[in-house]
């Protein structure tokens, strides 16, 4: 095990755990980006350059930004409401237990499996061109399906998030009374 791997893996794991356990939602989102960046670094270590950069571009550049936007727009940026936390103490414990069980089963099977003697093959020279050729030949059908899916997601997201006309007008009246930065941001998104 190389130290480089251990450091990156540690950062990724700490980032992920912090993202799921911190109280402040914006801190969670920022820690999540640390985990995403760590994952990208792991991809780069594994020789998947294209995927590593795509991971940074999509997850840090788009998904993380979307998440912080959603946090601010829903005004849940302070802390989670106390009511929801206290009530489900036992169910939370049970969930963590389930997750721990999953982790231990997975790691036991990984450690005891036949993967111990698997060594890395020589990394073939994978250029971006090769990936592009594969996408355009063998994987052209999935590519088209993804294109369709992304278009549908784009239209769907816009339609869902678009405020209903009458409701929006009603909101505008109440909004003026107490305007906070997040609400101003919400307006900004409406533009």
């Amino acid at each position: 095990m190389e130290t480089g791997f251990l450091i990156i893996a540690g950062i990724t794991a700490v980032g992920a755990i912090a993202a799921m356990s911190l109280r402040n939602l914006v801190h969670c989102a920022l820690c999540l980006t640390v985990a995403f960046a760590g994952l990208a670094a792991l991809y780069l270590r594994l020789g998947a350059q294209f995927v590593g950069f795509a991971q940074i571009l999509v997850y840090i550049g788009a998904v993380a930004i979307l998440i912080v936007f959603a946090i601010l727009l829903t005004r849940s940026n302070e802390t989670e409401s106390e009511a929801g936390r206290g009530r489900g103490k036992w169910s939370s414990l049970a969930s963590v237990g389930v997750a721990f069980l999953v982790f231990s089963v997975l790691s036991i099977s990984v450690l005891s499996g036949s993967m111990a003697n698997r060594t890395a093959q020589d990394l073939p020279d994978i250029s971006v061109k090769e990936i592009g050729l594969q996408l355009m030949t063998g994987y052209v059908l999935p590519l088209e399906v993804i294109a369709l899916l992304l278009t549908a997601a784009l239209i769907g997201a816009v339609l869902i998030a678009m405020p209903e006309k009458s409701a929006a007008n009603g909101d505008a009246q109440t909004r003026v009374a107490h305007r906070s930065p997040t609400e101003a941001g919400e307006k900004l998104n409406d533009l």
Binding site: L30, T33, I56, L57, I60, A64, I65, V68, G185
Partner: peptide, 29 residues
Amino acid sequence: FAVGAGSELAVFMAGWSSRNKYSLLGAMR
């Protein structure tokens, strides 16, 4: 483009952490 995406998050961090409505507004914009 991937590293360029990182700067957006920095702008958000600056705007949000200041706890000032103008900074938050600026960051959202």
